[in-house]
Design a protein around this nucleic acid. Structure first.
Lengths: 190, 190
DNA sequence: CCCTACCTACCGACCGGTAGGTAGGGCAAC
DNA sequence: GTTGCCCTACCTACCGGTCGGTAGGTAGGG
């Protein structure tokens, strides 16, 4: 969907139906022929984005091609590349979780991601319990890791300005991924 | 400033001058008697927020009451409590660095924070060079740590929904701080 | 007497949404 | 094969409401 770019670039309030309609080459009234309201457009965009993400993540999680640390590395790498390839998604999610404190839409991102979160917590609990990973609070670990990773992609502009180079360039991204993996590995190694 | 709450809660586009004026008990026209435009109000709010932060951070950095890991722990703790006590600030900064990719204002948050960033990079370089910390890329380390910490406070609603408890409650915050400190410590210990 | 702070009243622009009209493709009846 | 019909997709034109900003007036204190 083209509208995803608008909402993720300008936010819900900053995007007018005219912007979206112009982006796909029709008029506002024609856009409202396909969606009953602006909120419905946003909802469709957001659910589609979440669903795209879910497909990719499920694929990486379900496939047990590795175990122990290699499995964690595989999932983290998949997530990182997904974020790198879908910057709009990252910004959309960021905006949504910022706006969620008010109302905006009935969305509860936490509720949507909770199953995966629980799955990850259970995984770490099991692995830590069997001594394959160093003991941590899995909830804290996942939240901090998620924050560190998501932040890199939602603050691309800021980091670019800090470092003076494009953090999404291929070599920079690869170096950062290795850094994140090393960080997790250091924390998880028994 | 009261307006900070509006901008951080609703964003620039989502905040009208009427909202701000009503919040301080005057009319919009009276607000525009003190500021030439809405952008000027926002600019004042943002610069004031940055300046508040700068004061607190400078204070924590300049005072060499500790060294080695204790110094890092002191600075991290200061930052965390500042964020916890100023949720508006966190959300404002988050919104700004999301919006910065377009235009919105001439703000360059990266430029504003670069001196501190460089200072921190130099500090870690020195300490790592002298073997007091394990070797890492200091830039990556700082960016990841900043991301993990900032994320916790900008996604309070999301984390609340994930965990089912308030992440800003005193005990939860303290537990999280200990987790973050442990994480950094594990990464930095030689 | 003027200056500051505040007010009401207004402006043009743009917003989301609706009403109503039209061009054209698919399809059944003749 | 032609005719008539309907449905989908799109359009222009308009609505009430809100936006940021301005003009001009007033009350009150130094």
């Amino acid at each position: 969907m083209e509208a995803r770019r608008c909402f993720s670039d300008e936010g819900y309030d900053g995007t007018s139906l005219n912007d979206i309609a112009a982006g796909v080459g029709i008029r506002r009234a024609s856009l409202l022929h396909h969606f009953p309201s602006k909120e419905a457009v946003y909802q469709a965009v957001f659910e589609r984005a979440l669903s795209d993400w879910a497909i990719r993540i499920e694929d990486a999680i379900e496939r047990p091609t590795a175990e122990g640390w290699d499995y964690v590395e595989q999932v983290l790498t998949t997530v990182v590349y997904w974020f790198a390839e879908n910057p709009d998604f990252v910004r959309l999610v960021r905006r949504e979780s910022l706006a969620a404190a008010n109302d905006h839409l009935g969305f509860d991102l936490g509720e949507a991601l909770r199953p995966w979160f629980q799955q990850a917590v259970n995984y770490f609990d099991r692995e830590m319990g069997e001594g394959r990973f160093r003991k941590h609070d899995p909830e804290q670990l996942i939240i901090s890791g998620y924050g560190a990773i998501l932040n890199y992609f939602s603050e691309v502009h800021f980091i670019h300005s800090l470092l003076g180079r494009d953090p999404l360039a291929e070599d920079a991204l690869e170096a950062w991924l290795q850094h994140i993996l090393a960080w997790f590995r250091t924390a998880l190694e028994p």
